[in-house]
Amino acid sequence: MNIGKQFKEGLLTQNPVLVQVLGMCSTLAITTSFFNGLGMGVAVTIILTLSNVIISAIRKIVPDKIRIAMFIVVIAGFVTMVDLLLQAFVPALSESLGVFIPLIVVNCIILGRAEAFSYKNGIVASFFDGIFQGIGYTLVLLAMCIIREFLGKGSFGGGLLNGGAGIQIFPADYGVGMLTLPVGGFLTLACLIALMQWALSKNKK
Protein backbone atom coordinates (compact mmCIF):
# COMPACT_ATOMS: atom_id res chain seq x y z
CA MET A 1 0.00 0.00 0.00
CA ASN A 2 1.17 3.40 -0.97
CA ILE A 3 0.85 5.94 1.84
CA GLY A 4 1.31 8.91 -0.49
CA LYS A 5 -1.55 7.71 -2.67
CA GLN A 6 -3.76 7.16 0.36
CA PHE A 7 -2.95 10.68 1.55
CA LYS A 8 -3.97 12.18 -1.76
CA GLU A 9 -7.13 10.10 -1.90
CA GLY A 10 -8.23 11.02 1.60
CA LEU A 11 -7.67 14.72 1.16
CA LEU A 12 -8.57 15.25 -2.49
CA THR A 13 -9.56 12.66 -5.04
CA GLN A 14 -11.57 10.47 -2.64
CA ASN A 15 -12.40 13.15 -0.11
CA PRO A 16 -15.12 11.68 2.12
CA VAL A 17 -17.34 14.75 2.08
CA LEU A 18 -16.73 16.46 -1.23
CA VAL A 19 -16.29 13.42 -3.47
CA GLN A 20 -17.85 10.43 -1.71
CA VAL A 21 -20.55 12.71 -0.23
CA LEU A 22 -20.63 10.81 3.07
CA GLY A 23 -21.28 12.14 6.55
CA MET A 24 -23.61 14.90 5.37
CA CYS A 25 -25.66 15.15 8.53
CA SER A 26 -22.88 16.34 10.80
CA THR A 27 -21.23 18.36 8.03
CA LEU A 28 -24.36 20.42 7.54
CA ALA A 29 -25.40 20.67 11.14
CA ILE A 30 -22.41 21.54 13.25
CA THR A 31 -20.21 23.69 11.00
CA THR A 32 -21.21 26.99 12.53
CA SER A 33 -18.12 27.76 14.57
CA PHE A 34 -14.47 26.91 14.28
CA PHE A 35 -14.38 25.05 17.58
CA ASN A 36 -17.32 22.84 16.61
CA GLY A 37 -15.75 21.88 13.32
CA LEU A 38 -12.40 21.12 14.90
CA GLY A 39 -13.93 19.12 17.74
CA MET A 40 -16.17 17.11 15.45
CA GLY A 41 -13.34 16.52 12.97
CA VAL A 42 -10.94 15.31 15.64
CA ALA A 43 -13.61 13.11 17.26
CA VAL A 44 -14.45 11.48 13.93
CA THR A 45 -10.77 11.06 13.02
CA ILE A 46 -10.04 9.30 16.30
CA ILE A 47 -13.08 7.04 16.08
CA LEU A 48 -12.47 6.30 12.42
CA THR A 49 -8.83 5.39 12.98
CA LEU A 50 -9.57 3.18 15.99
CA SER A 51 -12.49 1.42 14.36
CA ASN A 52 -10.52 0.94 11.13
CA VAL A 53 -7.65 -0.67 13.05
CA ILE A 54 -9.90 -2.93 15.14
CA ILE A 55 -12.03 -3.99 12.19
CA SER A 56 -8.94 -4.70 10.12
CA ALA A 57 -7.52 -6.75 13.00
CA ILE A 58 -10.62 -8.88 13.45
CA ARG A 59 -11.51 -9.10 9.76
CA LYS A 60 -10.31 -12.69 9.44
CA ILE A 61 -12.43 -13.98 12.34
CA VAL A 62 -15.59 -12.02 11.55
CA PRO A 63 -18.15 -14.22 9.77
CA ASP A 64 -19.23 -12.55 6.55
CA LYS A 65 -22.94 -12.76 7.33
CA ILE A 66 -22.84 -10.65 10.49
CA ARG A 67 -20.02 -8.28 9.58
CA ILE A 68 -22.21 -5.14 9.48
CA ALA A 69 -23.60 -5.92 12.93
CA MET A 70 -20.06 -6.41 14.23
CA PHE A 71 -18.90 -3.16 12.66
CA ILE A 72 -21.75 -1.26 14.25
CA VAL A 73 -21.06 -2.73 17.69
CA VAL A 74 -17.38 -1.78 17.46
CA ILE A 75 -18.12 1.72 16.13
CA ALA A 76 -20.89 2.36 18.66
CA GLY A 77 -18.54 1.30 21.43
CA PHE A 78 -15.91 3.82 20.41
CA VAL A 79 -18.45 6.58 19.82
CA THR A 80 -19.99 6.11 23.25
CA MET A 81 -16.56 6.19 24.87
CA VAL A 82 -15.67 9.42 23.10
CA ASP A 83 -19.08 10.85 23.98
CA LEU A 84 -18.64 10.10 27.67
CA LEU A 85 -15.08 11.40 27.72
CA LEU A 86 -16.12 14.65 26.01
CA GLN A 87 -19.00 15.15 28.43
CA ALA A 88 -16.66 14.66 31.34
CA PHE A 89 -13.64 16.63 30.21
CA VAL A 90 -14.78 19.09 27.50
CA PRO A 91 -18.40 19.83 28.49
CA ALA A 92 -18.55 23.01 26.38
CA LEU A 93 -17.79 21.10 23.19
CA SER A 94 -20.12 18.29 24.17
CA GLU A 95 -22.90 20.80 24.69
CA SER A 96 -22.50 22.53 21.34
CA LEU A 97 -22.14 19.32 19.35
CA GLY A 98 -25.08 17.87 21.22
CA VAL A 99 -26.76 14.92 19.60
CA PHE A 100 -24.26 14.83 16.75
CA ILE A 101 -21.65 13.01 18.80
CA PRO A 102 -23.84 9.94 19.40
CA LEU A 103 -24.87 10.23 15.77
CA ILE A 104 -21.29 9.52 14.67
CA VAL A 105 -22.35 5.87 15.03
CA VAL A 106 -24.38 6.20 11.89
CA ASN A 107 -21.92 8.53 10.17
CA CYS A 108 -21.52 6.87 6.78
CA ILE A 109 -17.83 7.70 6.58
CA ILE A 110 -16.98 5.26 9.35
CA LEU A 111 -19.19 2.38 8.26
CA GLY A 112 -18.31 3.14 4.64
CA ARG A 113 -14.57 2.93 5.27
CA ALA A 114 -15.03 -0.22 7.37
CA GLU A 115 -16.88 -1.93 4.56
CA ALA A 116 -14.90 -0.51 1.65
CA PHE A 117 -11.38 -0.47 3.05
CA SER A 118 -10.44 -1.90 6.42
CA TYR A 119 -12.42 -5.13 5.95
CA LYS A 120 -10.22 -5.85 2.96
CA ASN A 121 -6.86 -4.36 3.94
CA GLY A 122 -4.15 -4.79 6.54
CA ILE A 123 -3.89 -3.03 9.87
CA VAL A 124 -1.24 -0.49 8.90
CA ALA A 125 -2.98 0.52 5.69
CA SER A 126 -6.29 0.78 7.56
CA PHE A 127 -4.67 2.95 10.21
CA PHE A 128 -3.42 5.41 7.63
CA ASP A 129 -6.71 5.25 5.76
CA GLY A 130 -8.49 6.25 8.97
CA ILE A 131 -6.11 9.13 9.62
CA PHE A 132 -6.17 10.52 6.09
CA GLN A 133 -9.91 10.14 5.56
CA GLY A 134 -10.40 11.74 8.96
CA ILE A 135 -8.14 14.64 8.05
CA GLY A 136 -9.96 15.03 4.74
CA TYR A 137 -13.24 15.22 6.64
CA THR A 138 -11.84 17.63 9.23
CA LEU A 139 -10.43 19.96 6.59
CA VAL A 140 -13.79 20.23 4.83
CA LEU A 141 -15.52 20.87 8.16
CA LEU A 142 -13.00 23.58 8.97
CA ALA A 143 -13.39 25.17 5.54
CA MET A 144 -17.15 25.23 6.00
CA CYS A 145 -16.86 26.58 9.53
CA ILE A 146 -14.51 29.34 8.47
CA ILE A 147 -16.67 30.37 5.51
CA ARG A 148 -19.95 30.24 7.40
CA GLU A 149 -18.59 31.90 10.51
CA PHE A 150 -16.76 34.65 8.67
CA LEU A 151 -19.52 35.55 6.23
CA GLY A 152 -22.33 34.80 8.65
CA LYS A 153 -21.07 36.42 11.84
CA GLY A 154 -17.96 38.30 10.78
CA SER A 155 -15.77 36.40 13.21
CA PHE A 156 -12.99 33.85 13.09
CA GLY A 157 -12.19 31.02 15.47
CA GLY A 158 -15.50 31.07 17.38
CA GLY A 159 -15.57 28.91 20.51
CA LEU A 160 -11.80 28.73 20.68
CA LEU A 161 -10.00 32.07 20.27
CA ASN A 162 -10.57 35.21 22.27
CA GLY A 163 -12.25 33.44 25.18
CA GLY A 164 -14.77 31.67 23.02
CA ALA A 165 -16.18 34.70 21.26
CA GLY A 166 -13.80 34.49 18.32
CA ILE A 167 -11.94 37.37 16.72
CA GLN A 168 -14.43 39.81 15.27
CA ILE A 169 -13.25 40.85 11.81
CA PHE A 170 -16.23 42.97 10.88
CA PRO A 171 -19.33 43.85 12.95
CA ALA A 172 -21.73 40.91 13.31
CA ASP A 173 -24.65 43.11 12.19
CA TYR A 174 -23.26 43.05 8.67
CA GLY A 175 -22.92 39.28 8.61
CA VAL A 176 -25.04 37.26 6.21
CA GLY A 177 -26.90 35.51 9.02
CA MET A 178 -28.51 32.97 6.74
CA LEU A 179 -25.19 31.19 6.36
CA THR A 180 -25.23 30.31 10.05
CA LEU A 181 -28.65 28.69 9.63
CA PRO A 182 -29.03 25.12 8.31
CA VAL A 183 -29.87 26.54 4.87
CA GLY A 184 -26.46 28.16 4.81
CA GLY A 185 -24.88 24.77 5.44
CA PHE A 186 -26.48 23.38 2.30
CA LEU A 187 -25.47 26.43 0.26
CA THR A 188 -21.87 26.41 1.45
CA LEU A 189 -21.52 22.67 0.94
CA ALA A 190 -23.02 22.89 -2.55
CA CYS A 191 -20.55 25.61 -3.51
CA LEU A 192 -17.62 23.64 -2.07
CA ILE A 193 -18.63 20.44 -3.89
CA ALA A 194 -19.02 22.38 -7.14
CA LEU A 195 -15.61 23.95 -6.64
CA MET A 196 -14.02 20.58 -5.88
CA GLN A 197 -15.55 18.89 -8.92
CA TRP A 198 -14.48 21.80 -11.10
CA ALA A 199 -10.92 21.58 -9.78
CA LEU A 200 -10.79 17.80 -10.19
CA SER A 201 -12.15 17.90 -13.75
CA LYS A 202 -9.68 20.63 -14.64
CA ASN A 203 -6.90 18.52 -13.20
CA LYS A 204 -7.92 15.54 -15.32
CA LYS A 205 -7.60 17.53 -18.53
Binding site: G175, V176, G177, M178, L179, L181, V183, G184
Partner: peptide, 8 residues
Protein backbone atom coordinates in the same frame (compact mmCIF):
# COMPACT_ATOMS: atom_id res chain seq x y z
CA UNK B 1 -35.56 35.02 0.92
CA UNK B 2 -31.80 35.10 1.44
CA UNK B 3 -31.96 38.64 2.82
CA UNK B 4 -34.93 37.77 5.02
CA UNK B 5 -33.02 34.83 6.47
CA UNK B 6 -29.94 36.94 7.02
CA UNK B 7 -31.31 40.27 8.18
CA UNK B 8 -34.69 39.31 9.54
Amino acid sequence: AFLLGSYA
